[in-house]
Simulated assay, not measured.
Amino acid sequence: MISISVLFLSGCIANLSKGELQKNFYYMENQYCQVIIDSQKASMTDKKAVSGAKKAKSNIDQKVNKLKTNASNRKLNTLIIHYGETTEKALQSYIDEIHGKKSYANAPYKSGQLAATIANTYFNGRHASKLAEVEKISNSDNKKTSHKSHKKAQETNSSSEDSISDSSQSDSDTSESSIPADYSNALKQANYYCNVQNMSEKSIHDQLVSDAGGKFSEDAAKYALDHLNANWNENALKKAKSYQQDMAMSENDIREQLTSSAGEKFTAEQADYAVQHLHDN
């Protein structure tokens, strides 16, 4: 009887490779992104939006349950499970707001933070294919929002939006028409990475010029970084607190993650500041 139970349980346990985990992560990310993309359609109604979000939530939940049986790559696996569960809450927040309710207000922000952490730490900054389309929506000057929660999912909160807007307006005395479009777009993306995802200067640069990222020129990336109103110490601190709260990492692990070339790419001084202020209120 015991041997049969052991055989049954062993048959339920998966051993997923890093590549397979990456596919699961991209699948979840694309599910969430598709809801945001669909919300921009002129034909989108509240009923259709709720139906699409519920379907995406269910699809992500199935992947999360599958990952909970995985016995390999435990650290990455746990992080992707946490991302999936947080993204389900973000989708529920979207549904509830359409119905005039409030729930999981911070879930979209945490979902974006976790996605950035996973992509930057394990997949060389590469995200799911649909994220680029969502970023175009987020950075569009003429964006039209069908639902308030979509705006929250893109920009996470009003303070981030104000920070981005203020930075964009104050960082250049030159008229907008005289700035090359690529430079302006690079700055918009850099503001998003800086103020919403709390990325380091090096990570933002690499994301802007990467063939898997913004594909901007070095000159456009330099312009964007030169015109950012950034506090890199505070970005490092926000990342550190995310690692502490979401992954229960030790201070030494947090410092290594912050400075790692395969991680967040902050300077040693910025990482030291973050760890020193980790327990501040």
Rank of each mutant, 00 (worst) to 15 (best):
T69C: 10
N70R: 04
N70C: 08
A71G: 12
N73M: 10
R74G: 08
K75P: 04
K75H: 15
T78K: 14
L79F: 03
I80E: 09
H82F: 10
Y83R: 00
G84F: 11
E85Y: 13
E85H: 07
E88H: 09
K89Y: 08
A90R: 07
Q92F: 12
S93H: 06
Y94I: 00
Y94P: 03
I95F: 10
E97T: 05
I98A: 01
I98C: 03
H99A: 08
G100A: 04
K102Q: 13
K102W: 14
S103K: 11
S103T: 07
A105V: 02
A105R: 03
A107T: 01
P108H: 00
P108S: 01
Y109N: 05
Y109A: 03
S111V: 04
S111E: 02
Q113E: 06
L114V: 10
A115W: 03
A115P: 09
A115Y: 09
A115N: 03
T117E: 03
A119N: 02
A119P: 00
N120H: 14
N120S: 12
T121A: 10
T121W: 11
Y122N: 04
F123H: 11
F123M: 05
F123T: 00
F123S: 00
F123N: 01
G125P: 04
R126N: 11
H127I: 05
S129E: 13
S129K: 01
L131A: 04
L131Q: 12
L131Y: 15
L131K: 13
E135T: 11
E135K: 09
I137L: 03
I137A: 08
S140D: 07
N142Y: 07
N142R: 07
N142P: 09
N142C: 14
K143T: 14
K144H: 14
H147C: 09
H147I: 06
K148Q: 13
S149N: 07
H150W: 10
H150Y: 10
H150F: 15
K151F: 15
K152C: 01
K152Q: 08
E155H: 15
T156E: 05
